[in-house]
Nucleic acid binder design. Structure first.
Lengths: 231, 231
DNA sequence: GTCTATAACGAGATAGAC
DNA sequence: GTCTATCTCGTTATAGAC
């Protein structure tokens, strides 16, 4: 698909990348809400209408940036999981969480684009669903690999939650008990709560030495989904 | 300060409120990044320069909206805590979490303003610090009231975290053990992770019946800070 | 077919003269 | 405070180069 078919195709790929790069620069400077096709074109020495050969609309450019960002965190998480494959599940979980945080700290504006406030007037198309799921799938994978079938100390499900717990379980992790599936989804959201609070400034004057704080909290999250300190 | 001193003072208060109301409407429509004094003025039938009598700059208007939003969630949390004063600490904790979520669902744009992506080019002044702390203080209060001095089953602190844990503890909750202080700050961040994921669309196609899911997760957070199901 | 450039639209922001 | 001239924006139609 992306093999070198010729100069034409290669130029197209390069220009597409240049447009996205410049758009990311603008994202950092002005925010997603003010992302402007004309400004991108101007900065690249093109005319705005030429951009429409590469992205049919401003929203499509935004979608491309969002998909790229999800893929980047997802890849970082997958890499961390693979590198820690031999370690104990709880350590592997923690390594993945740390990789997510590290990516977020290195790419704060792209993080804000995907995990921050929605962009006004923009509605995400289907294309973002699969990339958005990657980090979650990595976490699921670790828990599934560690699950022995022994009932870990999970809190009992309240009656009001059981239908939803069944649904989440069958959709996401049919081989795990519903209570664990619920805990997993919650831990996934809570992980990003920690990252967002650090990135969006809520930890100012509260948490100073953030790396050990995050690591301990992430580890705790791992225990909440049944991963044991002992291995 | 806000007592009725005369017609002049009353008019000023009313106009200030009208400006903020209109600004909130724009917040919902266009997002904080595009909040424009001119547009607010136009909508109110004023001229833009007249607004500067009430807010010296766009950033000051933004600050007022942010402070109002923090105060509103804070008040909602305080109200919930007071109403559940007689209940068991874990139920009270859960009630406060649910109140935070309910406020967020009712005021999604104001929630995004304070807990979402930072507004590009805006830096929060000191005025926001105290209002931003209110929800956290409510949570601290519940845990402090429930803490018996008996060591709950808290995970041991890793060595790398102890200096920071001491700092957090002495700053925030000098009467509680450092490990509990750390768990509390983490739970505070994680609570907003749950709310943000729901509000910002990450739970789409993942969690459908969100009320019982959130309640169970919030309750679990309460247990993570040492509140016991038994009372 | 693939691309870029010109020109234009309707809408909105902005700066300055008055 | 008002008005106006001049900017921005996303988007489209069209024409011509490769």
């Amino acid at each position: 698909m992306t093999t070198v078919r010729g100069a034409r195709a290669r130029a197209r790929i390069e220009i597409t990348a240049a447009i996205k790069d410049e758009a990311r620069t603008q994202l950092a400077a002005e925010g997603a809400a003010k992302l402007s096709l004309r400004a991108v074109a101007r900065e690249l020495g093109m005319v705005s209408s030429a951009l429409y050969r590469y992205f049919p609309s401003r929203d499509d450019l935004l979608t491309a940036l969002i998909v790229d960002a999800y893929d980047a965190v997802g890849a970082a998480a997958e890499r961390a999981s693979a590198e820690a494959e031999a370690e104990r599940p709880l350590d592997r979980w923690t390594a993945v969480c740390r990789a997510v945080r590290a990516w977020a700290l290195a790419h704060p504006h792209e993080y804000a684009l995907i995990y921050g406030s929605p962009v006004p007037g923009y509605t995400a198309p289907q294309d973002t669903i699969a990339p958005a799921a990657r980090v979650g799938l990595v976490l699921i994978d670790i828990v599934r690999g560690a699950h022995t079938g022994e009932g870990v100390a999970l809190p009992p499900l309240p009656d009001a939650l059981s239908p939803e717990a069944e649904r989440i379980s069958t959709d996401l992790v049919p081989d795990l008990p519903p209570a664990l599936a619920v805990a997993l989804v919650a831990a996934w959201a809570q992980l990003f709560g920690l990252v967002s609070f650090e990135l969006f400034g809520q930890f100012q004057r509260v948490v100073e030495d953030r790396d050990p704080f995050f690591t301990a909290a992430a580890r705790r999250l791992g225990q909440d989904v049944g991963l044991l300190p002992g291995g």
